[in-house]
Design a binder for these strands. Structure first.
Lengths: 332, 332
DNA sequence: TTGTAGGCGTTATCAA
DNA sequence: TTGATAACGCCTACAA
């Protein structure tokens, strides 16, 4: 790592002086204006190099008409799905010259009441909320907003989310295709899980029996284990379990192991979200990929559209998920 | 979620006019100056409320002497250890009125050459680099810098990192305490792994035999599996395996399963980093907790000290790790 | 305790 | 194609 000495950051004045031009000229070069002679441009560019000049974002966004900044609110950095979401957002936004600023719900509490407050102070041009938005967030109607991956829809906000119902159907079809006829579902009373179950039932149709064990509360590993134990008590004959998400699927696998049931020889297990844990070879969990990259890209595009024209009608986009077959599901 | 109408953000002028005072007075109230009459303060505060006023961070940092912003560079959002690191950093920094801005190496590429470039443009007061820093990062000597969790030390940067050697010793003592005498290590040629192995050997001393299977390259799950196979081929009698990190430990467990060896009945396994995966009940991996929260807190404190006095000597802080015993290690 | 005025580093609007 | 000059929204002496 090189570390170069530098006392105070150079300003546009320094650059102008060194290049022997006016500050306006420097500004034009910075904005890649074509109406600058090659000669002057070169002079400015080398001055910038020599002085290690970097425009102050504060000054830029204060003087300019737009901040070129998008705020992304994550519910929790621990939920890894945001990684793919960001990838998609990047593709859609930063290539268009927008800067992404991410914060989880707790990042700057104490300074700002909420990450949204902070973003508004930064005069972001738009906000992406990843996941289920807090119901008490106060976002001015004038701020373009898109909910990525959440099911709760806000009047003036675009929504881009995984098609949970379609995912449920895919899980069903996968298991039916493997010859399973006695299926179980373990989940919780969350909006997503409810949709996934609905799709699952839909996909199963009359072809098989579905036993459901759904708990109130969180979709945790522990809940997955408890729900699975209850399921097995009631329906010891199930040969496949669809879990509301990957974490619950892990819990299900623990519970199955406790009963001496092997996965996938005795019971197949399928999760949802295709988290990194599912993708490890040690776990190798068959799962439904919610296509977070796509959700991110779609969210970014919607946001750009709304920034361009704030008055367009809000849309609701559903992204088709994809099944990733691994080691935990097998032919009956 | 409430969404309030608002066309253009209110400025300090609007607030001043509404409260019937000067902008300076408003500014004083914003800075919680005690030299303001209660009466005026109240008037300003209600005006702020009514106008939904929020100071522009751009204007604040441009006009003020300090940006009150710290940049945090993560190598990759997928490495979950940054979550705890941020928790520690928050405790140390944002309570002191500093705003945290996080970026991984790719977040704003295309706009800035690197996240560091972006931070310098924001005129951050300090930078925290999480993990191993890129060797070609150009950071002005005038910017306070601390490397959190990296072993590579930079001349003028403070370093706060996990004591890998101590962690290795702990792993050894744990296994010896459980009665194991034929130990294996699977790792890779990374700085961290080398230290961990050194500590491991140190902790074992003359009490047991250590077989090493260390590959070149990355510390991946797959490498862990390959290294473990090689280890078992050479030393089929090992009863415990210490892996360079949790991901490799997962690979080790896969390889053991392939050979029909049960964990922990036949072979104990211990990882390093105490990642979320290790903490799941399904995996239940005994691991060394590198105390990322502590590293974050320590990094924040060092950074504050360096911001207060840029000329203090750089320090190197080692944080004592902690062993977390779970299901994958058992008495011989 | 409160107000006035200048400046922070840019962009934007005019002239030249 | 270039250069003055006025904003942008706030902080900070300095004055009152």
């Amino acid at each position: 790592m090189l570390t170069m000495g530098d006392a105070k950051p150079a300003t546009i004045y320094d650059v102008a002086a060194r290049a022997g031009v006016s500050k306006s000229l420097v500004s034009l070069v910075l904005q890649r204006s074509p109406r600058v002679s090659e000669q002057r441009r070169a002079a400015v560019l080398t001055a910038i190099q020599e002085l290690d000049y970097r425009p102050s974002t504060a000054a830029v966004s204060l003087a300019g008409t737009r901040s070129r900044t998008i705020g992304v609110v994550l519910d929790d950095f621990r939920n890894q799905w945001f990684v793919d979401l960001l990838t998609g957002l990047r593709e859609a936004l930063q290539d268009q010259g927008h800067r992404l600023v991410v914060a989880d719900r707790f990042l700057n509490t104490g300074l700002d009441a909420s990450p949204v407050e902070g973003f508004l102070s930064m005069r972001v041009e738009g906000i992406v909320i990843a996941g289920e938005p807090d119901t008490d967030l106060a976002i001015p109607a004038s701020t373009p907003l898109v909910i990525a991956g959440g099911r709760l829809s806000i009047p003036r906000a675009d929504t881009v989310a995984n098609d949970d119902r379609a995912g449920g159907r895919m899980a069903a079809q996968h298991l039916l295709g493997l010859g399973h006829t006695r299926l179980g579902f373990v989940g919780a009373q969350s909006a997503a899980a409810v949709e996934r179950l609905a799709g699952f039932r839909d996909g199963v149709g009359e072809s098989a029996a579905v036993a459901v064990s759904s708990l109130a509360g969180e979709l945790t590993e522990d809940a997955g284990a408890r729900a699975t134990r209850a399921l097995l008590d009631e329906h010891p004959d199930v040969t496949a379990v669809f879990a509301g998400n990957d974490v619950m699927a892990l819990g299900a696998m623990s519970a199955l192991a406790e009963r001496g049931l092997r996965v996938p020889e005795d019971v197949s297990v399928i999760g949802y979200d295709d988290t990194p844990i599912a993708a490890t070879r040690y776990v190798g969990l068959t799962s439904i990929d919610d296509r977070s990259v796509e959700i991110g890209r779609g969210s970014g595009e919607r946001l750009l559209a709304r920034i361009a024209d704030p008055d367009i009608a809000a849309t609701e986009t559903l992204v088709e998920p994809r099944l990733v077959a691994r080691r935990t599901t097998a032919r009956r």
